[in-house]
Amino acid sequence: MAQTNSDIRYLTPITVDVRKKKYCRFKKLGIKYIDYKDPQYLFRFVNDQGKILPRRLTGTSSKYQKKVAQAIKRARHIAIMPYIGDNLKETK
């Protein structure tokens, strides 16, 4: 029986997109407050143009997404984070 499986040659391997269950990292880790003063943490929620990542990508719940968005906007106000980032921002 095993041979028949190997006989079937697919041109491209069938990509089964395994749907990774998204979870809210704040609920899981029990983080209650997002500090607007440390940039390393906030840069994870921002794409390389400095825009805030949407919930469908990060999977955070709405309550914490609001906190993240507010923290990022505050960080931008005191020039810890750029409004328009250049793409080498990730390497900071």
């Binding site: 209650k32 407050y33 500090d35 607007y36 505050r74 106000h77 005191i78 020039a79």
Partner: peptide, 19 residues
């Protein structure tokens, strides 16, 4: 040249104490 004052709720107070 720039300032920001923020009220701290209980989670924030706890966080800063820990920090």
């Amino acid at each position: 040249i720039r300032f920001l004052t923020v009220a701290l709720d209980k989670h924030a107070i706890e966080y800063s104490k820990k920090r």
